[in-house]
Design a protein around this nucleic acid. Structure first.
Length: 590
RNA sequence: GCGCCCGUAGCUCAGGGGAUAGAGCAACGGACUUCUAAUCCGUCGGUCGCAGGUUCGAAUCCUGCCGGGCGUGCCA
């Protein structure tokens, strides 16, 4: 019974140890806590402790060798709270957690908090807006849109887990010249019946056909421009068609989002800002930012090292950036956000630099809180995907195939499973989402069916399998692993770990890794990289699998069994909460 | 041309200025009478694109070059 180690706070696992180290070390070395924290690192080998402080930086200041400094400090620091021993190892100062204290604190909290375990509250009172997904109306949802959708959705959950109020916005591409093209195409070749049957598919075909025919017949482009002008002027017929297209595709997008478990607080597309554009242009003029040039309106950004950009076409039509300016201003007025994140492809980096600069020049101090979160392209071996040329892969096809494959693997490996459908959905969907999130978002990815449909190795199914295995053990031990069943038993003192528990290296490693959960959530959110959490979950699942092979649970002696059950229950909670932050379900059986 | 991003094992990728650069896949060899073998253990595999520089210390920061990607005023 080691609750005595857990006197105050005792949340956030190793993050708490980190704080203890930082506050102990800062006065001793004459640094601020932030400074100490920036030097603190996780050692390469678990034998070197949970955190390390390299003493090189102090060497000049203290006129001593890093080795001596480290040795001196090690002598001065006494165990307290979660901090166990502190050892000098050459120029490094290595901090070791007191494992029984950690076990008691972390497992007690995990089982106590369940579905909210690992979450922090530092963002309370602040609002973060996240602009993600933003598919184009009347175009099919391709794999290209997957990235913004899953990255944005995960950031949404991550910031929520830090205690922020988060507003997810789907800035639909529901306006622009492509509607002129679509209306033109529909007037020339459109058939209402085909449209109703499979709207997005059909509009896509019309769109591709338009571009093909426009190559030999440039008059189509002129017509499209004119149709769009009509739409902008509010021509009743044009507006009617546009609204129809918009409604039909929105319906399909909503269905797809539901299927993927993704949601938004707001569907506010580009058209939403139509009547704010004139005011935005006016504001730019007032601030002296808008100059006439060749009949168009231009913001001169040359003095700031950026190319100038067009605010308004010579025919008076507004441009993308004007919409984004209006949207940002509107959003700030409405939400007073402390951060506004744009999860948009890296090819638009310049656009966002210009956007943020103009906002700053307009005198909005919150311009500094706007941030572009870029990501790389999804490409084919042969080159870029292009909706115009029709060489896209539909997300729905990818999901169908992935879920189908998951289904047949389940059929083969676990034929007695009751609800194979649900499990196949969880695994197939998880594989697709995880496959996208696991890589650093900035890198381009090459789309390849073989790797999308490969469930071995570092994949969602690997993590999910570890989770399902734990659930299986818990079931056999007579514990309820179902959601809400995270608190199936009162925390009987007999279930708390004692000094002798977790002596096996696999147990220790598993405990340490699961204790890093909060730290990893925080890092992933701060760095805006869900991939970091994905890698953490792979590591945790791996540590569990090693534990699984080395340490029997059900057949262990009573004390060991109880301690291990508690440990894996904690691990299960972390796996499920962690997958949840990536937007991936954690099935109990698969 | 100019600007931004990427370059790590055969392939796909981790790597928080720090200790001996790590996983997965592929290949080969082991482990199911035992909690789901979608697992685990082992072997093989490296001029961290190249050359300089900064630093006590560079895969990581700076400069140049090479290769690839993206962008570069009337698309988004």
């Amino acid at each position: 019974m080691l609750t005595k180690y857990c006197t105050k706070g005792c949340d956030a696992g190793l993050l708490r140890l980190k704080e203890e180290i930082v506050s102990t070390l800062a006065p001793l070395v004459g640094m601020t806590t932030t400074e100490v924290e920036s030097y603190l690192e996780i050692p390469p080998d678990p034998d070197m402790g949970e955190y390390a402080f390299p003493c090189f930086v102090l060497s000049r200041r203290l006129k001593k060798s890093p080795k001596d400094i480290s040795a001196d400090l090690a002598r001065q620091i006494k165990p307290v709270g979660l901090l166990g021993k502190t050892l000098s190892s050459g120029p490094y100062l290595n901090f070791y957690v007191h494992r029984p204290a950690l076990a008691a604190a972390v497992l007690g909290e995990a089982l106590g908090k369940g579905q909210s375990y690992g979450f922090l509250s530092e963002g309370e009172g602040q609002t973060v807006l996240i602009d993600y997904s933003a598919p184009n109306i009347a175009k099919p949802f391709g794999v290209g849109h997957l990235r913004s959708t899953v990255i944005g959705s995960s950031l949404y959950r991550l910031y929520g887990a830090l205690g922020y109020r988060v507003v997810g916005i789907n800035h639909l591409g529901d306006w622009g010249t492509q509607f002129g093209k679509l209306i033109t195409a529909f007037r020339h070749w459109g058939e209402e019946a085909l449209l109703e049957k499979d709207p997005v598919q059909y509009l896509f075909q019309l769109y591709v056909r338009f571009h093909k025919e426009a190559e030999t017949n440039p008059e189509l482009d002129d017509e499209a421009r004119q149709r769009f002008r009509q739409l902008e002027k509010g021509d009743a017929e044009a507006v009617r068609i546009w609204e129809h297209f918009r409604e039909l595709s929105l319906e399909e997008f909503r269905r797809l989002y539901d299927f993927m478990g993704i949601s938004f607080d707001l569907y506010q597309g580009e058209s939403f800002y139509n009547d704010m554009l004139a005011g935005t242009i006016e504001l730019a003029r007032e601030k002296g930012l808008a100059k006439e040039s060749e009949g168009a309106l231009v913001a001169d950004l040359e003095p700031y090292g950026l190319p100038s950009c067009l605010l308004q076409k010579k025919d008076g039509a507004a441009l993308y950036i004007t919409r984004d300016l209006s949207a940002a201003i509107y959003r700030y007025e409405k939400y007073r956000f402390s951060k506004l994140l744009y999860v948009v492809g890296s090819e638009q980096t310049l656009h966002f630099k210009q956007l943020f600069k103009i906002l700053e020049l307009m005198g909005f101090p919150w311009a500094k809180d706007c941030l572009h979160v870029p990501f790389g392209l999804i490409r084919f071996k042969e080159g870029r995907m292009s909706t115009r040329e029709g060489n896209v892969i539909f997300l729905e096809d990818v999901l169908d195939r992935s879920i189908g494959l998951a289904g047949s693997i389940i059929q083969e490996k676990n034929p007695d499973l009751k609800d194979k459908q649900t499990a196949a959905h969880a695994v197939g969907l998880g594989a697709v989402i995880f496959g996208d999130l696991v890589n650093d978002r900035i890198k381009d990815v090459e789309f390849d069916w073989d790797s999308v449909l490969d469930f071995s190795g570092e994949t969602a199914p690997y993590v999910q399998y570890a989770h399902a295995r734990i659930c299986s053990i818990l079931r056999r031990a007579g514990r309820d692993p179902s959601p809400g069943g995270d608190l199936p038993q009162k925390e009987e003192p007999t279930f708390l770990p004692s000094e002798g528990d977790f002596a096996e290296p696999e147990e220790q490693q598993l405990l340490i890794t699961m204790s890093r959960f909060s730290e990893q959530i925080k890092r992933a959110a701060v760095e805006l990289k869900p991939s970091m959490l994905a890698h953490y979950l792979i590591n945790l699942a791996r540590d569990f699998n090693k534990f699984y092979h080395a340490c029997p649970v059900l057949t262990a002696d009573e004390e060991s069994k109880n301690a291990r059950l508690m440990l894996i229950q904690g691990v299960r909670i972390v796996l499920r909460n962690g997958l949840g932050l990536l937007g991936i379900p954690a099935p109990e059986e698969m």
